[in-house]
């Protein structure tokens, strides 16, 4: 069954290619036109074949594997139909916990990230001495490699780390930043620190793209800063805001490295007790070799992201 589906996909692509050429050859047309079409087809078919292999095939394969009980080291991979999906929603507590954590993660980080990004952009919008330095300063975490950054934050969150030293100096008690109950929120802080530089940058581009005359006209009409912000800036920033919202949502749903590095492999980290969807997919697939279940979860993640992104796009267009 699995082999049939595997080879079937390539057979369909091959047949479609042959049919395309056959139609061009069989259909009555001028020799010049046929030559042109054959040229176009011979250019497009390899490109489309590569596109299929690197883009479509992995997604199809994930979908197909999600229908099997798929252990890569077992020769027999029984067909389960929708069994993996049913299992996820009925008796996979790890998945359900991961889903709750990921929704919480997205629910907090997306608006906070957007807000901080926008605030920073508003502050840096007017060029002043040192503004370029601050732009770079806020943007650097975004381009810095995630793993060493996460390790540094892990140190900062340690019992004797810099955060607790500051808190102690202020006279308060130590905070267990990476305990089971606080680790997810601590990772959110690190995540926001790391990502909002990018949002700041795109908001900055958007803000600097708004012509000054709008603000001048608004000033003449007696609009104060807040009115200018809500009636001029925000409406004109809508395309940028929509893009930022989609990007920030994707980041939040696909968060992995920060959680992986900061929660695993250390005696003081909470381990797999702090789960998000992509980490759960990774563990199911690569730690427990439950590739079918992991693929089903990956398909669910894709659907969730797709629905949210489409909803955001539709909402953005409706407002336009």
């Amino acid at each position: 069954m699995e082999k049939l589906i595997f080879f079937g996909q390539f057979a369909v692509v091959a047949v479609l290619s042959i049919v395309t050429f056959a139609i061009i050859l069989a259909k009555p047309m001028s020799a010049v036109r046929r030559k042109q079409l054959l040229f176009v087809a011979s250019i497009l078919v390899p490109v489309l074949a590569i596109f299929f292999i690197v883009r479509i095939y992995p997604m199809l394969q994930t979908l197909i594997i999600s229908l099997f009980k798929y252990d890569p080291i077992r020769p027999v991979k029984p067909f389960r139909g929708l069994g993996n999906y049913v299992q996820l929603f009925t008796r996979d507590e790890q998945f359900q916990q991961s889903m709750r954590n990921t929704l919480l993660f997205a629910g907090i980080t997306v608006p906070v990230n957007m807000l901080i990004g926008l605030c920073l952009a508003l502050v840096l919008q007017r060029r002043f001495r040192g503004s370029s330095f601050f732009e770079s300063l806020f943007f650097i975490p975004y381009i810095a490699p995630i793993v060493p950054m996460a390790i540094v934050w892990q140190w900062m969150y340690a019992a004797d780390g810099v955060f607790n030293q500051i808190i102690l100096a202020l006279g308060a008690g130590k905070v267990a930043w990476m305990s089971l109950h606080t680790a997810l929120y601590s990772i959110m802080i690190m995540f926001i620190w790391q990502m909002n530089g990018y949002l700041m940058l795109i908001f900055l581009v958007g803000l600097r793209g708004i012509p000054d005359m709008y603000y001048e006209v608004a000033s003449i009409d007696g609009a104060n800063w807040w009115v200018q912000f809500t009636r001029v800036t925000l409406p004109l920033l809508r395309p940028i805001t929509l893009y930022g919202l989609i990007v920030a949502t994707l980041w939040a749903f696909m968060v992995f490295s920060q959680v992986f590095v900061m929660t695993q492999g250390s005696d003081v980290a909470p381990g797999a007790a702090v789960q998000v969807l992509v980490l759960d997919i990774y563990q199911k697939g690569f730690t427990y070799r439950k590739m079918g279940l992991a693929s089903a979860e990956a398909v669910m993640l894709l659907l969730i992201i797709l629905v949210i992104t489409l909803a955001q796009l539709r909402l953005g267009k409706a407002k336009e």
Partner: peptide, 10 residues
């Protein structure tokens, strides 16, 4: 007590 950490340790 070993109360946290990944892998088999706990």
């Amino acid at each position: 007590f070993r109360v946290s950490g990944g892998g088999y340790g706990v």
